[in-house]
Amino acid sequence: MNNFRIGFGYDVHQLQEGYEFWLGGIKLAHEKGAVGHSDADVLIHVICDAILGAADLRDIGFHFSDTDPQYKGIDSKILLKEVMKLLRNNGYELGNIDTTICLQQPKVNPHIPLMKQCLADVMEVKTSQISIKATTTEKLGFVGREEGVSAYCVALIQTKEN
């Protein structure tokens, strides 16, 4: 019998000129980038939080503190790979994730296939297990003013079959 568990993730990063913009493991060309201790990949961060939450393994900040110098500027794909190891070492496997990115500019939809492939490779899952959607906020709020990016993720995990 499978033991299913659900986790949820939410994250926000400020956008500023002079920073690279990493999203879903790929670098987007844009005049602004996300600000953070790591590479500030908001999509990977919410995926990590949703998976960790589903497995009752706390959150990304607990495992990879933003005050720890070893994570300064780190590629978030490395963090995601570690989260997947934690998941599997605790007897779980990923069922699927469903994500939503809230971003006014740049347009995300053209990049979704490459993001899905990148994330699937890092997570060692099928691309069909990863859903990425994008929306604007119709120019409302900090996202609409292009001051930041936010993302949401729901993850379904299940106990590994022996």
Rank of each mutant, 00 (worst) to 15 (best):
residue 1 M to N: 06
residue 2 N to D: 06
residue 4 F to W: 04
residue 5 R to G: 02
residue 6 I to N: 01
residue 7 G to N: 07
residue 9 G to M: 13
residue 11 D to N: 13
residue 15 L to F: 04
residue 17 E to Q: 15
residue 18 G to I: 06
residue 21 F to G: 12
residue 22 W to C: 13
residue 26 I to A: 09
residue 28 L to Y: 08
residue 29 A to H: 13
residue 30 H to A: 15
residue 31 E to T: 12
residue 31 E to S: 12
residue 37 H to G: 04
residue 38 S to P: 03
residue 42 V to L: 10
residue 42 V to D: 11
residue 43 L to M: 05
residue 44 I to W: 09
residue 47 I to N: 10
residue 47 I to F: 02
residue 48 C to R: 04
residue 49 D to L: 00
residue 50 A to E: 01
residue 53 G to W: 03
residue 55 A to G: 00
residue 57 L to A: 05
residue 60 I to G: 11
residue 61 G to R: 13
residue 61 G to M: 09
residue 63 H to P: 01
residue 64 F to I: 07
residue 67 T to S: 14
residue 69 P to M: 11
residue 70 Q to V: 14
residue 71 Y to M: 08
residue 74 I to R: 14
residue 74 I to V: 15
residue 76 S to V: 03
residue 82 E to S: 10
residue 85 K to M: 00
residue 85 K to E: 01
residue 86 L to H: 08
residue 86 L to N: 05
residue 89 N to I: 04
residue 92 Y to H: 00
residue 93 E to C: 05
residue 94 L to G: 07
residue 94 L to P: 06
residue 102 C to I: 06
residue 103 L to M: 14
residue 107 K to T: 11
residue 108 V to K: 02
residue 109 N to F: 07
residue 110 P to D: 14
residue 111 H to C: 11
residue 111 H to D: 10
residue 112 I to V: 12
residue 112 I to E: 08
residue 112 I to C: 03
residue 114 L to N: 13
residue 122 V to E: 10
residue 122 V to P: 07
residue 123 M to R: 02
residue 123 M to Q: 08
residue 124 E to R: 06
residue 125 V to P: 05
residue 125 V to I: 15
residue 127 T to S: 08
residue 129 Q to F: 02
residue 131 S to F: 09
residue 132 I to C: 08
residue 133 K to A: 12
residue 133 K to N: 14
residue 135 T to G: 05
residue 135 T to H: 04
residue 138 E to D: 08
residue 140 L to S: 02
residue 142 F to R: 13
residue 145 R to D: 13
residue 145 R to C: 10
residue 146 E to K: 12
residue 152 Y to W: 14
residue 152 Y to G: 04
residue 152 Y to N: 11
residue 153 C to G: 04
residue 154 V to S: 14
residue 155 A to W: 01
residue 157 I to K: 00
residue 157 I to F: 00
residue 157 I to G: 00
residue 158 Q to I: 00
residue 158 Q to N: 15
residue 160 K to H: 03
residue 160 K to N: 07
residue 161 E to P: 01
residue 162 N to R: 13
